[in-house]
């Protein structure tokens, strides 16, 4: 899976309440509506800055906090193609894979700046920064995770295969 877009930078420990504020999270199950409020407490204009295919790039422990999968779903519906971070909180990691939002763990995520043009090969974990002409390596996701992502999430994977294929 190859992805292309520009970077939107955030810091460490971006919690699920920042990703989608609690005041919206419980009001609606309409993901496209939720998507318009992604990261709003950190950057009120975030949604309008995103072009389909862009990346969120963050520091460590991205997505800590709640288990509510509205967080990765709202990011996915905001047309972000993948989140690149130094590390992820584990429930967010699971929810992202299971709902089909690609994520990459990259220890050098700090080398990417706001607005950098990136190209990402999900299966190899290669990130090419076209702005800086630099290659970064992300941790390779296990093949089963790539498959779930390519198929759109865990539910879709199970429907297609009738089971989980490790």
């Amino acid at each position: 899976m190859n992805l292309k877009g520009k970077a939107h930078k955030f810091g460490d420990s971006i919690n699920t309440d920042y990703i989608i504020s609690g005041k919206y999270k419980f009001k609606t199950l309409d993901m496209d509506e939720l998507a318009t409020h992604v990261m709003e407490d950190l950057d009120p204009d975030f949604c309008s800055k995103v072009t389909a295919g862009d990346f969120i790039v963050a520091g460590k422990n991205f997505g800590l906090g709640s288990s509510r999968e509205q967080a990765p779903l709202a990011i996915k519906h905001a047309k972000i193609s993948a989140v690149i971070a130094r590390s992820f909180a584990r429930i967010f990691f699971r929810n992202a894979i299971n709902t089909g939002l690609p994520i990459l763990i990259c220890r050098d995520a700090d080398r990417i700046d706001e607005g950098d043009e990136l190209e990402v090969d999900l299966s190899s974990g290669l990130i090419i920064n076209r702005t800086k002409e630099e290659e970064l390596k992300a941790e390779k996701l296990p093949p089963i995770m790539i498959r779930i992502l390519e198929e759109g999430g865990l539910a879709e994977h199970l429907i297609r295969h009738g089971g989980f294929e490790v």
Partner: peptide, 16 residues
């Protein structure tokens, strides 16, 4: 865990 995977456990009784 998340909601989608909880749904798959409702159906299958197992999880990754």
């Amino acid at each position: 865990i998340g909601s989608t995977e909880a749904a798959t456990v409702f159906a299958r009784g197992k999880l990754w």
